[in-house]
């Protein structure tokens, strides 16, 4: 079943230096599965994720031939309808907990805000739900975390708090923008298994944005490779190491390998023609 379908999505910015196209005609569809979007910084992967939620500020403009989420046309939806979708049906985990959590509010207050405002829950009930959400992302001492400010948490904890916050309303689609790039391998594995469990148990759709190809190959079902705002290759994640497009191959080859040779790593060949 298709949860989200996007056709010919474009994001343009009208800047002083002229029109900048961050996303140029991206099309994909997503069921209840894990879709990875990979590419270098500036390839438009984050903008694609944000455009689905129509979270692009002016002067940025979003156009698409079609962008439908669960039967609802996202291009035609009013601001009010979009607000009803955001968080509740489609949630997004931002890249950096340092910048995405409010630094002057305790974690507990931030987790409970949505429950109190949106779901009109009482204080005690909201508190209990927030603690349960922290437990669901395997935070061992939720009471301490509820009472902590974001700067008192490590990167891995902060990231889990953000995931917990996004999962409270039980969304159908989660867009995760580099949710693990600030984390080291062991914590990364934990966060991924949490996300994986959610896709499996709740039947959630997941768009996983990352620049780490090996991670995406291991974790996702399908992968879009983006270059300069275009999708240059779409393939099943398990076939990523057998990618055909020279750009995808280049991205894989420039990674160091354990036991690999000590000669300089191959640079990435960036061919302007791939983006036309």
């Amino acid at each position: 079943m298709t949860l989200l379908s996007v056709e010919n999505l474009r994001v343009t910015f009208d800047t002083e230096a002229g029109l900048v196209e961050a996303v140029r005609g991206v099309s994909f569809s997503l069921g209840r599965e894990r879709l990875g979007i990979v590419g270098e910084s500036g390839s438009g992967k984050t903008m694609t994720g944000r455009a689905v939620l129509r979270l692009i500020r002016p002067p940025g403009k979003i156009t698409a031939d079609r962008m439908v989420f669960d039967g609802q046309d996202l291009m035609q939806a009013s601001d009010r309808e979009m607000r009803a979708l955001r968080g509740r049906r489609i949630a997004m985990v931002m890249q950096d907990p340092k910048y995405s959590l409010n630094p002057v509010l305790k974690v507990g207050a931030q987790l409970m805000e949505g429950l109190r405002q949106r779901d009109r829950l009482g204080r005690a009930e909201a508190h209990a739900k927030a603690v349960a959400a922290l437990e669901a992302v395997q935070i061992r001492d939720p009471d301490r975390v509820m009472d902590a400010y974001p700067h008192e948490l490590s990167g891995g904890m902060g990231q889990r708090v953000m995931i917990a916050m996004m999962l409270i309303p039980n969304p159908d689609l989660l867009i995760a923008d580099e949710p693990t790039s600030a984390l080291d391998v062991t914590v990364q594995a934990e966060v991924l298994s949490i996300l994986d469990g959610l896709v499996r148990d709740r039947g959630m759709g997941l768009i996983f944005i990352s620049h780490d190809l090996r991670l995406v190959a291991r974790f996702c079902d399908r992968v879009l490779v983006m270059y300069k705002g275009k999708v240059v290759e779409e393939l099943a994640a398990r076939d990523l190491t057998r990618a055909k497009h020279p750009y995808t191959q280049g991205l894989l080859n420039c990674l160091p390998r354990i036991g690999g040779p000590r000669q300089p790593l191959p640079g990435l060949d960036r061919n302007a023609e791939w983006a036309t």
Binding site: E40, S41, H211, D212, L213, G250, L251, C254, L255, P256, P264, L265, P266, G267, L268
Partner: peptide
């Protein structure tokens, strides 16, 4: 850094 930029930086450090 991105994978491709990481490769360039590691090569620079080794050189």
């Amino acid at each position: 850094l991105d994978a491709s930029v990481q490769a360039e930086t590691l090569n620079l450090l080794n050189r």
